[in-house]
Write a protein that binds this DNA or RNA. Sequence first.
DNA 1: TAGATTGTTAATCGATTAACAATC
DNA 2: TAGATTGTTAATCGATTAACAATC
Lengths: 223, 223
Amino acid sequence: MEVKGISQAILRRLPIYLTYLKSLPPQGPVHISATAIAAALHMGEVQVRKDLASVSKAGRPRIGYIVSELVEDLEAFLGCNDVSNAVIVGAGKLGKALLDYEGFSEYGLHIVAGLDIRVASEETTAGGKPIFGLSKMEDLCKRMNIRIGILTVPADQAQKVCDQMVESGISAILNFAPTHLTVPEGILVQNENLAASLAVLSNHLFEQMHKDSIKNTQEGESL
Amino acid sequence: MEVKGISQAILRRLPIYLTYLKSLPPQGPVHISATAIAAALHMGEVQVRKDLASVSKAGRPRIGYIVSELVEDLEAFLGCNDVSNAVIVGAGKLGKALLDYEGFSEYGLHIVAGLDIRVASEETTAGGKPIFGLSKMEDLCKRMNIRIGILTVPADQAQKVCDQMVESGISAILNFAPTHLTVPEGILVQNENLAASLAVLSNHLFEQMHKDSIKNTQEGESL
DNA sequence: TAGATTGTTAATCGATTAACAATC
DNA sequence: TAGATTGTTAATCGATTAACAATC
């Protein structure tokens, strides 16, 4: 009856293993060791072993894991098998792209529809997904028992719309708006934060540049 | 001459502060304290103070920061002022959406063009951005001194294309492919990993469901 | 001055890594 | 058996939080 808590850090690495295992040729070896996975992905061997141990009990000393079994365990744990319905709120360019993006289905997510405040009656994306007015959200979500919402509205509207999503029964939000969302207890927000990633990238370039200039200076001095 | 290292954790929070500060009404108060920011964003007060201290020296006891100064310091640190050119490699649905996505410019990123292996001569997105064949990458990147690449190809091609990007002089990669990339020293990859976020979300729903069912069972037993 | 707020120094917490015993 | 690989227990590392002195 114990609810095993698994850290978010581990949780975010599991899809990496899954993708890698799925990319292996089907006619390849039946078994694979944590060591081999770690080597292929340039990750820590112990870390991989510990991560895998938290989702699968099928590891055998000397042999490793049966690839197909490990894939199953990972998929089962990540809930790839049971399909969840989801809506995308905010049908701007990014929202529309995500509506038509097939990638979600691989992770058990079925995007039912888009919702946008600017839409009066009903529209359809290039890929054939419907977009409704925002007023339809509560009805749609409750009727279809939708718990996952993807938020792609501008930053200044994000909090307001987020509140409406929570009202509509959504309890897991993938937030693309470059802002912090405040939510009640029990609601989870994952920030898919482009701004944050770009900050890390540009800082890296800056430091690299800086390092180069030091190196050049030193080289210059040593001449 | 000391290169101050700033942790990635802090770096990823800085854009949150910046977005919040920019969202304040221009006719609002001139000053703002770390305490107030923390309260508004529901973050730790000490954490905010420490984060801000790492990019700005303009904090005054009793008063806090001058909003406009803090915005400047954040923007300067995050490199929002100096525009970097970038390319998007992989012009599928997501890639095209990102090509036309205006949000990048807010963080000093100018998307020059898209590159796609399937494109023979030259195409144009709905928003007017050019898409070239992948063979043009090296020439384009070196000519325009492009250091940032956004990777939106399918997982199974990601590593190969990533290698080509590095060859072309790109040293900071924003990776949307649901896979781990192996890169040489000095190259930074930021994984904008939808799969990872979805894993965290669906695990949250699962645990919530589980908790609900325990609660229901206990309620049932207590009757 | 008094007190709010800053930045810093020390303590806590959690995640990663290392060491090792168990096992096929 | 020998040895590779597993899972676990202990040590290290880094980030967050708490306590406090400095300051306007």
